[in-house]
Amino acid sequence: MSAPSPFYREAGAGPAVVCLHANASSAAQWRPLQESLAQRFHVLAADSYGAGKSPPWPGERQMALSDEVALLEPVFQRAGDSFSLVGHSYGAALALRAALSQPQRVRALVLYEPTLFNLLDAERPAPNAADGIRATVARAVASLAAGDPDAAAECFIDYWMGPGTWAATAASRRGPILASIVNVRGWADALFGEPTSLDAWRQLQVPVLYLVGRQSPLSAREVARLLAGALPQAQLVEFAELGHMGPITHPQRVNPLIADFLQRHCGA
């Protein structure tokens, strides 16, 4: 049986940049960034398992972040021997995992709130700052089991973007989210089950732009407290007015910082 192959969007020429999306999203979230970078960079934006046009996770065992990274290897091969990674939320966790497994290939990292919740449990057993997302996932999984994906999506989206967000979401935008929300248990298992310790991230010698929204849920901000302090070459930037979905809701604020960082560290 052939290995699963991811879908990815590609544009531009120059130093390679691979963009990885958040949960309940797809590579399409990076279209504005891809368009702005394409004159100077070779930009590839990939769909993870069960997102966009990539295949669902085919295994019977629990999926790990390392499995997601393995799916993306054809994208990394297309990017070449050296590339940078841009990731948001789950995609930022994947970017970190990929960089740790092959640091010789990764020139720089841009991370908007990686959701490595295992770090919170490792620092302090529950109850802790991960309780909000843990409870959200449990409610979403229960809703899926009851045959109500709409309620599952509402739990998940409103946790990250505030009460009432799902109710206000246009019908045209709901379809892809409802299609991907079935993966919510797998996402949580991969993030909470990630074995990499905080000490391992202290060894990652790669320039990092770590972006945080001060309006984000506590879980994401507490991961930032631990991780931004551990990454030895991290530059932390906080947006006072933005939340966890800043790259999607306010690309005009986030994307220029990403472009400037990549030009300084990876420009031709």
Rank of each mutant, 00 (worst) to 15 (best):
D121N: 11
E154H: 12
R107C: 09
E113H: 07
A152L: 11
A135F: 03
G80C: 07
R97N: 13
A126W: 06
R97C: 06
T115Y: 08
R105G: 05
L116A: 05
E113M: 08
S101K: 14
I133R: 02
V141P: 15
L85S: 02
R139C: 14
A130H: 05
A153C: 14
V137N: 07
L100S: 11
L96M: 13
A93M: 07
L144D: 11
P103V: 05
A93S: 15
P103E: 11
L144E: 12
D131V: 01
L144I: 06
C155I: 00
E113G: 10
L111N: 08
A98F: 04
G91H: 10
R134D: 12
S84R: 02
R78A: 10
A99T: 08
A151T: 14
Q102W: 05
Q77I: 02
Q104M: 08
S82E: 15
V110E: 02
L116T: 01
R97T: 14
A122W: 04
I133H: 06
A151S: 15
N118I: 00
G91C: 12
D148F: 00
Y90S: 11
S89E: 13
L109N: 05
G147A: 08
A152F: 04
D121V: 00
A98P: 14
G80I: 05
D131L: 04
R107S: 13
S89N: 14
A145S: 13
E113Y: 05
L94E: 10
L100A: 13
L109E: 05
Y90W: 15
D131S: 13
L96W: 10
L109D: 03
N128I: 00
H88T: 11
R134H: 11
V141F: 03
N128F: 01
A135H: 12
L111M: 09
G80S: 07
R105Y: 03
A126F: 06
A122K: 06
A92C: 12
A99M: 12
N118L: 06
A145G: 13
L100E: 14
D150F: 14
S101T: 13
P149A: 08
E154S: 14
L120N: 02
S143Q: 12
S89P: 14
G87I: 03
T136K: 00
V106I: 12
Y112M: 07
A95T: 01
A153L: 07
A135V: 00
G87D: 11
A98N: 09
D81Y: 00
S143P: 04
R105V: 03
L120G: 01
S82V: 06
E154N: 11
R97A: 09
A140P: 03
V141E: 15
A152Y: 04
F156W: 10
L109T: 03
A152M: 10
A98S: 14
A140E: 05
T115C: 13
E123V: 00
D150C: 07
A95P: 01
D131A: 12
L111G: 07
L96H: 10
Y90K: 13
G91Q: 11
A146K: 11
